[in-house]
Design a protein around this nucleic acid. Structure first.
Length: 201
DNA sequence: CTGACGATTCACT
DNA sequence: GTGAATCGTCAGC
């Protein structure tokens, strides 16, 4: 397990990074226990030129300030008043690129994930969808601004390779109102993986 | 200060 | 497929 270095996140093309994140492993060590899952669905948000991005047009507010932080920083915000959505900030400081992690396949700490999700038995919904995976992984807005070059919250490469042809691309989920950006092919997912959210699987 | 609105999820028909 | 839950954020007054 090799922790992804700053150079992975600091690249300029957020779409390339979003695709590269497919197959990587998100790890959270909360001091007591560890949970980990393989990333099977991501969405890229291309900064100031992307109408679906919180930073569209250079918008800078208290909420999205972390998008302007250096690469490899966690951007976590609350959606619909109750869901914590986990993103990875990319590119250099002041370029507000981010990638939303939308689904994971559990690898470690499944019992703890089920406990956090208040579920008795494992199913594909445990880590399907950005709000659900945050609960399963124990990620909340407390992690907003946290470095992913840290020892308790990071993304690693375990040398499992997802072939490019096994990765599908589609428009993003839940951005219908973002006019032309609604159809940008910025969502990446593992074809046929049961943990992937939205349509199609 | 106020109101409209989400990068969603879940239960229910 | 439809609708409710639930509240921080932000533009606008």
């Amino acid at each position: 397990m090799k922790k992804l270095p700053l150079s992975f996140y600091s690249r300029k093309n957020v779409l390339v990074i979003a695709k590269d994140l497919i197959g990587k492993v998100l790890i959270h060590h909360n001091g007591k226990a560890l949970t980990a899952g393989r990333i099977v669905e991501t969405e890229a948000y291309d900064g100031v030129i992307d109408r679906a991005s919180h930073a569209y047009g250079g918008r800078r507010t208290a909420r999205n300030e972390i998008m302007y932080a250096e690469a490899g920083t966690a951007y976590v915000y609350i959606c619909y008043g109750m869901h914590h959505l986990f993103n990875v900030v990319t590119n250099r400081k002041d370029i507000p690129h981010a990638i939303l992690i939308r689904a994971l396949e559990p690898l470690q700490g499944l019992d703890l994930m089920l406990k956090r999700r208040k579920k008795k038995k494992p199913d594909h919904l445990v880590t399907r969808g950005p709000g659900s995976l945050s609960v399963a992984m124990g990620i909340t807005v407390k992690q907003n601004g946290h470095s992913l070059i840290s020892d308790d919250l990071y993304i690693a490469d375990d040398d499992v390779r997802i072939p490019s042809k096994a990765i599908a691309v589609s428009h993003r989920i839940g951005v219908e109102s973002s006019r032309e950006a609604a159809v940008y092919p910025y969502r990446f997912y593992v074809k046929g993986n049961p943990f992937v959210s939205g349509h199609p699987r």
